[in-house]
Design a protein around this nucleic acid. Structure first.
Lengths: 200, 200
DNA sequence: TTACGTATATACTAATCTGTATATAAAAAT
DNA sequence: ATTTTTATATACAGATTAGTATATACGTAA
């Protein structure tokens, strides 16, 4: 029973305090920046102490990595559910994707795309935070490639990369200036590119 | 003679040490991040002392703002010269633009787009560094709009915003992983969008 | 020489940073 | 009832941060 619980928590699940720290850190990292947010601030806002934080996370870098991981997992889950529930035809899913991205970006609690900001704060490609960010970006590209293949695109890799550029560019624009409406224009551009790639 | 020289240096020109500090800071900010780079490191690499740095810049924030300003001015000047020397027809300039962006990005001393990284490190829209970054992004968009108007695009604003999303997205991708070739794909996408917008 | 402007060297303040040590309170499990 | 676990409170170490104070050296211009 004891060992089971330990294993359980080691997996990253369970423990309300641990979840609270992750949520608070995620919010502070996004709104104030990662390097500008100290662990003292995190524990103060989370209503706990440093001892507890360092019981759940070996270091601040570990905490950053877990925040990134959770953010990416949550986003992926949300997006997949949206796609699976609302669209059946593979040819429509690429288009619909941009509707959901827009919904995500225009939500009042949108704080930006975590791995985009993180990679900018840790520019060195050897840095673990940068590497994880690049990995997330790569996974998102692969996800788009699958959608493009299923839709029957001529050059799925090419289309997927173009769409990822559009999406990350639009989100970057929205991080720079909230309410920019960039996703709306990215959607228009995507429509043209998708139609172009689906012509036989 | 004295007052003239003071005014001259106040304008930001002259003084080799000042230039050296700006160059070193620019490089360190891009390669290590802004918040991760202390003024002690900057003066050590530049081969001077803090007293000198604070004689030319009131604060680190002032230095950051000047680095951003110089980076944007240098890029704008370079791009304008390239466009003016190599392309005469307004209808071809939008296409050519992507060739120059690719040339800029694939150069061995490319370190990223300063205002993209800066806005990520200072996410708060009230922050002076973020505001200047947003201003540079806005100016770049306006520059694209002028090119789109001259080219005779149907909806110049829309096309300009789409192209800015493509460019900033591709540069973001290249910052994430050097040699990604993102600009090449952005160029293909741009060609389609431009042709689409130039149809009568 | 004298005076002045530029830059260096060095030491300092005061705050902040990550991470740890220690002692204790509270609660849950045996 | 007693052990074990979980979390708190607090203080600390050691490094680093931005920015300043002071004294000095160097070159140039009067």
């Amino acid at each position: 029973m004891r060992t089971e619980e330990l294993r359980y928590m080691g997996n990253g699940t369970m423990s309300l305090l641990r979840e609270k720290i992750l949520d608070v850190a995620s919010d502070l990292f996004q709104t104030r920046g990662i390097n500008s947010t100290g662990v003292d601030t995190i524990v103060a806002v989370a209503g706990t102490t440093k001892m507890t934080l360092y019981k759940y996370f070996r270091s601040k870098e570990d905490l950053i990595l877990e925040v990134l991981h959770k953010g990416h997992a949550d986003f992926s889950t949300w997006l997949n559910q949206k796609l699976n529930k609302n669209t059946k035809k593979p040819s429509e899913r690429l288009q619909k994707l941009f509707d959901f991205i827009e919904e995500w970006v225009t939500a009042p609690d949108f704080r930006g795309m975590a791995f985009l900001k993180a990679s900018a704060e840790f520019p060195n490609e050897e840095n673990p935070v940068h590497r994880l960010s690049a990995e997330h970006s790569k996974q998102f590209k692969q996800f788009l490639t699958e959608l493009a293949v299923d839709a029957g695109a001529k050059d799925a890799d090419s289309l997927a990369l173009q769409l990822s550029i559009l999406i990350e560019g639009a989100i970057q624009a929205e991080q720079m200036k909230r309410g920019s409406g960039a996703v709306k224009y990215a959607k228009k551009a995507a429509k043209i590119l998708i139609e172009n790639a689906l012509e036989k």
